[in-house]
């Protein structure tokens, strides 16, 4: 329980960071992630045939 409160303090960035969204998804397209069932998916396949909205959640807590 203590670690839950303390870990953000230890792992937070020490100085401001900038977001750096890409203009092309080339760095994302070949990343393979598993879904909640364990099925692997190449990210580029998500937008191969139609647009995709890719949402990055902070965590599944």
């Amino acid at each position: 329980m203590i670690a839950w409160y303390v870990s953000p303090m230890l792992e937070a960035a020490p100085s401001p960071q900038q977001t750096r969204p890409p203009t092309q998804a080339t760095t994302l397209e070949n990343i393979v992630l598993r879904d909640y069932r364990g099925i692997p998916t190449r990210l580029g396949d998500l937008w191969r045939d139609r647009p995709a909205a890719l949402v990055f959640l902070r965590h599944y807590g």
């Binding site: 977001t19 969204p21 890409p22 998804a25 994302l28 998500l46 937008w47 191969r48 045939d49 139609r50 647009p51 995709a52 909205a53 890719l54 949402v55 990055f56 959640l57 902070r58």
Partner: peptide, 8 residues
């Protein structure tokens, strides 16, 4: 996190 919308 964040959101990206990516075209085909």
């Amino acid at each position: 996190g964040g959101v990206l919308v990516i075209a085909p």
